[in-house]
Write a protein that binds this DNA or RNA. Structure first.
Lengths: 254, 254
DNA sequence: GTGTTGTTGTCAGTATATGAGAATGAGTGT
DNA sequence: ACACTCATTCTCATATACTGACAACAACAC
């Protein structure tokens, strides 16, 4: 492993359920000598990506706050999707949350959200949360349109988890995704969080799926059938975003 | 420069007014060969810190969204200050924004904000924005309590900028800060943005200034005198936060 | 004072980062 | 279909700079 990759790997240790690490723990987790672990941490602290928190503990640093703001201001996809999402939210009577997700590492992450009325807007799948590629409507809305080669690789790498979630074979798994592809959207019930229904559809750039838009609601607020009845609205929304993305790509190319 | 520092330096090129870089530009800016620039960029893309945006351009990546959420959930200072800030906001009739700032590199950065009523809450000094150490009440509220050694170093490194902003000598500069220290708060008018008044006071841990809390309002909404009349409320707030911070540090030490 | 813990410094050896340039690959224009 | 450009990855010989072990230092507890 290169020195650079190692230092970036340090950051990847920090997770929602493990947000403070000592230098020793980092060294042990990554198989580094104490000296090297300290060197990596020092660099990250200097750049603001790590921050000393307690006696010997380090947490994620303030640099992320700064960079996240830049991302928020820059990201073309979010900027394009934002008004479309707001409109879609109105269409569903503000009784849920509209999310925008994209691939991130081996997961699908929510990168933008537009929340409805507070009473219905609580969601576990909020901005910054990453889900495994096989869990939830948003993940499936991306998975179903992945090129076969990538899909097969992802399947093989996660076969046990996938079997546990339903499909018992590659054929069955593939058939499930083919059905999603046929209808144009993915609908799941209580997959990400109990009592929540998700409806999602893909966003393309040059015929490649780059993201998806989803609607998340509580099942007591909206029945599965009602959610599904909004599929045409969602499909219209994702088509609008895809078109705008294509238009912009064209403009940049000139 | 080490390979790791260089890779982190790539990220530091990305600024509000320059959010897309080509690999060649990065290489030129950092004095790297094309190969090396590509290697650095590739590592950063793999980790999600950079993201290809246009034909040959790269922008900040989705990893920052994820990490920012973790920081938001973790950061003890923000969690402690948040309710205090909300209370202070009510005290000033919600006619402005309460911000929490801390040092970041050679700047002071807003790491948390609680906004008042939309009509009065617009602010340029929002979460994630970094200001030079000499501009604005928040910066001064931290600067004034820095140890003399750090202060002198900061002064020497920024003498021209400081002179342009008022104080013509170290003595005068020092006197200005001494006055802030005496009253316990900093008050500035149209320093960060025209027509905006800032009031800020320091937060300590073990007698070291670690952050500050500030009130930002539009001068047409609240006169300078009115803002200043809220200084006791602010001082009460920062004292509460400092105490809570100390209590927690003690708890961790056991 | 002594002991513990967290962090930085020193140093020799070698793993690995480096730059130059070739090779690949995806688009673009003709 | 063609050459052509531009972005990116690959190859390779060289020596830089990263590594681990250990010592030294600093802060704090008792």
């Amino acid at each position: 492993m290169t020195a650079t990759a190692r230092t970036l790997a340090v950051l990847q240790l920090f997770e929602a359920d493990r947000q403070v690490w000592t230098v020793d723990e980092i060294g042990r987790a990554l198989g580094l000598s104490s000296s090297t672990a300290y060197r990596s941490v020092r660099e990250l602290v200097k750049a603001g990506f790590l921050d000393p928190v307690s006696r010997a503990g380090y947490g994620l640093g303030p640099a992320f706050i700064r960079y996240e703001r830049l991302v928020r201001q820059t990201d073309r996809l979010s900027l394009i999707a934002s008004p479309v999402m707001a409109e879609l939210l109105e269409t569903v009577g503000r009784r849920g949350t509209i999310i925008l997700c994209r691939r991130f590492r081996e997961c699908v992450m929510c990168v933008h959200e537009v929340r409805g009325d507070p009473a219905h807007a609580e969601t576990t799948y909020e901005r910054g949360v990453a889900m495994p590629m096989f869990v939830g409507a948003s993940s499936k809305a991306i998975l179903a349109w992945l090129p076969d080669r990538l899909l097969k690789a992802a399947y093989l790498a996660n076969e046990p988890a996938i079997r546990a979630s339903g499909p018992v074979s590659w054929a069955e798994f593939k058939a499930q995704l083919r059905e999603i592809k046929r209808t144009g959207f993915a609908l799941t019930d209580s997959e990400v969080a109990k009592g929540r229904i998700g409806l999602a559809a893909p966003i393309f750039r040059n015929d490649q799926v780059i993201a998806c838009m989803g609607l998340v609601v509580t099942s007591s607020v909206m029945s599965r059938a009602t959610v599904q009845s909004h599929a045409p609205d969602l499909l219209k929304a994702v088509r609008a975003v895809s078109q705008q993305v294509a238009r912009e790509a064209l403009a940049i190319a000139r």
